[in-house]
Amino acid sequence: LKCQSLDIKHMMAFIEQEANEKAEEIDAKAEEEFNIEKGRLVQTQRLKIMEYYEKKEKQIEQQKKIQMSNLMNQARLKVLKARDDMISEMLSEARQRLANVAKDPSRYPALMEGLILQGLYQLLETKVTIRCRKQDVQVVQASIQKNLPIYKAAVKTNLDVHIDQDNYLPQICNSGGIELYNADGKIKVSNTLESRLDLMAQQMMPGIRVALFGANPNRKFMD
């Protein structure tokens, strides 16, 4: 019986040892699988986090570009407005100086003669009505008398010119000049000083802009 008891004890110890080894093996394998799964999950989450922040970074960079573009456009518009304001002030000052020309008796009559003769050549009509400021009627009458022989000699036709003393130029044309109409009033030549200034400003504006602000580096074609 003693031998059987020892054998049983040895067998139980062997079984227990084998069970412990098997349990340790299972624990080790479970620990390994756990670490592998943990590493996989950590790597997956790391990739997701990196992808999230890369996406956020791209969004922020895009927003920065949009904001920078908006700021540049706003600055460009402010520069353009400042330039337009400067040109408007310059033209306004020129209009104020024109008013002084009309007050100069040594310059205004000769200027009026040129405006009238030029208008007659532009119309080339046999009957012409001239509209002027009320205070310029005498100057216009004298200019007509002086220009009629010159016009007739050049065009070889008679010309009937009269001043419209029922409708004078509006007060807005305070710088002087004249308007000329054909017989039925459908054709008009505006030779007021303001209209001449506007025409000259339009023609000279590219050169004025270059003189004031320099050449535009983005302009590809020149007139």
Rank of each mutant, 00 (worst) to 15 (best):
T126M: 01
K2V: 10
A23L: 09
P109I: 04
D7N: 11
G119D: 00
Q43W: 06
R131F: 00
R95P: 02
Q63A: 15
V210N: 05
I116P: 04
R219T: 12
A215N: 10
F213I: 08
T192K: 07
E57K: 14
I49V: 13
R83T: 03
I15T: 11
Q141N: 07
S5F: 11
K22P: 00
L212H: 05
K152H: 02
I26V: 13
K56F: 08
Q203F: 11
L193T: 09
L124M: 11
F221H: 08
I15Y: 07
Q17V: 04
K64Y: 03
D104G: 03
K22D: 08
Q122G: 02
I87L: 06
F14E: 06
M11L: 13
E24Y: 08
E179N: 05
C173M: 15
Y108G: 00
F34I: 01
E54R: 12
K2R: 12
L77Y: 09
I60P: 00
E57C: 14
Q135R: 03
I66M: 11
E57A: 06
Y181E: 00
A201H: 12
L120S: 01
T192L: 02
Y52R: 14
Q141A: 12
T157R: 01
L159N: 00
A28H: 02
R83F: 05
L197K: 09
A23Q: 06
S69Y: 03
P217A: 12
G39N: 13
E54F: 08
N100M: 11
L197W: 07
F34E: 04
G214P: 08
M222K: 12
G207E: 05
I66S: 11
Q17M: 13
A75W: 07
V189A: 09
A110T: 13
I172A: 10
K29L: 14
Q122W: 04
R40H: 05
L80W: 05
S69C: 11
E31I: 10
K29M: 01
Q118H: 11
L111W: 03
N167L: 01
N73P: 03
K65A: 08
I187L: 07
R209A: 01
H10C: 13
M205G: 07
D27S: 12
R107I: 15
F14P: 00
V128L: 04
M86W: 08
H162I: 10
S143H: 08
